[in-house]
């Protein structure tokens, strides 16, 4: 245990995992409230195209590290994707889900093709799809902490206003609250969270980290604020526990974190069901 905490690789990985564990459920709570739990998954697909575009640009610019622009590429693509979805959603278009499907699968297919063109390997691709926390550098830690803090400040600081907009959009509009601006803030927050979490759990599992802790918290919480707070605690717990276990056992951290979260959900659901049976 002490060895693990002294290991500089693990120190960096634990910091990143902790930040991601806290951040994911904040945005996740707003997504669940809007009944858009799968949005994170879709934006993750789009972000893959951004990663690959970053690689391609890096190769073209003859960068020593071709992956250097992968994260900026993911941020740009994920943000554009999230804003596009927000735009479609706010207009309430009938074909919105079909347009989103095209965007999502276009993202992942385009990502795979671009990655091939950029000279990336299947292993590179898997690192982004399922996480590659063992390769976190000091620069990654700085970027993760900065972006994570930004999302936490907006997501927690504006919680009453973001709650109002997500809970009853029509009422929020008649209150004069800047609804559009706040919706854009959630969309950008989702894009940044996904980019940050890509390192830990990967783009295909990122939505799980945003949503499953919220699902667990919902079993017990009585208010929106407590749902978010409990979900943040659970997110950090499963991320740190999952990562620590991989120090001792040879397992894939991203997948382990999500499986732990789902196991906790099943356990919590069982406890709650038994609790209601006993009180009857």
């Amino acid at each position: 245990m002490i060895d693990m905490l002294m290991d500089p690789f693990m120190q960096r990985a634990l910091i990143v995992a902790g930040v991601v564990g806290l951040t994911g459920p904040v945005i996740g709570t707003y997504l669940v409230q809007r009944r858009m739990s799968l949005l994170g998954d879709g934006i993750g697909h789009v972000a893959l195209a951004g990663v690959a575009a970053g690689w391609l640009a890096g190769s073209a610019a003859n960068l020593a590290d071709r992956s250097a622009w992968a994260v900026p590429g993911a941020i740009v693509f994920a943000t554009i994707g999230a804003l596009t979805i927000e735009n479609i959603r706010s207009r309430g278009k009938v074909a919105a889900d079909v347009i989103m499907a095209i965007l999502f699968y276009g993202g992942i297919a385009g990502g795979v093709l671009l990655m091939g063109l950029a000279g990336g390997t299947g292993a590179n691709l898997l690192g982004y799809l399922f996480g590659s926390i063992s390769t976190v550098s000091s620069a990654d830690v700085t970027v993760t902490v900065a972006l994570g803090l930004a999302v936490l400040i907006v997501g927690l600081g504006l919680r009453p206003a973001l709650f109002s907009v997500s809970h009853d959009n029509e009422f929020a509009r008649t209150s004069g609250i800047p609804v559009h601006l706040l919706n854009v803030a959630v969309a950008i927050g989702a894009a940044l969270t996904i980019t940050v979490a890509m390192r830990v759990v990967g783009l295909l599992l990122v939505s799980g980290l945003m949503i499953v802790p919220v699902a667990i918290a919902q079993l017990f919480a009585k208010s929106f604020a407590s749902t978010m707070n409990i979900a943040m605690g659970i997110g950090a717990l499963v991320c740190l526990t999952g990562l620590s276990l991989t120090y001792f056992y040879d397992m894939q951290p991203g997948a382990l974190i999500i499986v732990l979260a789902i196991g906790l959900y099943a356990f919590a659901g069982l406890v709650r069901t038994l609790g209601t049976l006993v009180t009857r």
């Binding site: 409230q33 809970h167 009853d168 029509e170 009422f171 209150s175 004069g176 929106f224």
Partner: peptide, 25 residues
């Protein structure tokens, strides 16, 4: 129009009535 995917307490819903164009906190 009331309600979303996450539970909200009555107090939280009422508190949202205190926000307006000049006050988002």
């Amino acid at each position: 129009s009331a309600g979303g995917g996450v539970s909200a307490s009555a107090r939280e819903v009422v508190t949202s009535g205190l926000l307006n164009s000049r006050r988002i906190f």
